[in-house]
């Protein structure tokens, strides 16, 4: 390494070693690549929901004004929430369905374990079986099914009917026919009093 020639700048001497030079160049390239990749992450992550969106408020809903057989739609995190006060007949119909007949055997209930079966008891409100609270979005491509208003066509199973591609849901919000792959989802909610629920 040491160069005895006094006219040569000794600090340059090691650079004559090609392997060392290549190592440095590879190192420089690696650093540039790492730097670029790391800088990319904030540019991607900034598009994710921000802190205020993630903390979005829960909502309180008063169920007292909803008579049997009626339904209301409320907004939660920008999504429609279907709240249906089911008739005894509708509850019976939902209970009579055998699990084997279901397209999607899972309850899709955020308040229960992921693998809970899609029985009506697992779909309806705990201990308040007339009440069905679910996110009113068709699991096919995100349209909002018909069936909330009195005069709506509710499909062959008396629940909801999605006008976009004809998915049909039963009175427990389970997919029975059509292209949708999953039952409509149940959001996290709880009764705060006999007639009030808090969603979220």
């Amino acid at each position: 390494m040491a160069n005895s020639d006094s006219s040569t700048n000794p600090s340059l001497a090691y650079d004559d070693d090609p392997s060392r030079r290549d190592v440095i160049l590879i190192g420089a390239g690696a650093f540039a690549a790492i730097g670029g990749a790391v800088a990319l992450w904030p540019l991607i992550d900034q598009m994710n929901p921000d802190a205020s969106t993630l903390s979005l408020a829960s909502i309180d809903v008063d169920l007292a004004p909803i008579d049997e057989g009626q339904a209301i739609t409320v907004m939660w995190r920008g999504k429609p929430i279907f709240i249906r006060h089911r008739t005894a007949k509708e509850v019976e119909e939902a209970k009579d369905v055998k699990l084997d007949d279901l397209v999607d055997p899972l309850a899709r209930n955020a308040n229960l374990p992921d693998d809970a079966p899609a029985t009506d008891a697992n779909r309806a409100a705990a201990d308040k079986e007339p009440w069905l609270v679910m996110i009113g979005i068709c699991t096919h491509l995100g349209c909002i099914p018909k069936g909330q208003a009195i005069g709506d066509y509710k499909g062959e199973y008396g629940g909801w009917f999605c006008p976009c591609h004809g998915s049909q849901y039963d009175t427990s919000g389970r997919i029975r026919k059509g292209p949708a792959p999953e039952n409509m989802y149940i959001p996290p909610y709880a009764f705060t009093s006999d007639t009030k629920i808090k969603i979220g």
Binding site: G27, A28, F31, A32, G35
Partner: peptide
């Protein structure tokens, strides 16, 4: 810290690359 290390590496890389030129110059001078 990353930038400081990167700068040192870039400086060494720059010197290593330019050493070829400096070597040629010395040969020309001699």
């Amino acid at each position: 810290i990353f930038l400081l290390v990167f700068a040192v590496i870039m400086y060494l890389a720059k010197k290593a690359v330019w050493a070829r030129v400096h070597k040629r110059d010395h040969a020309a001078k001699n």
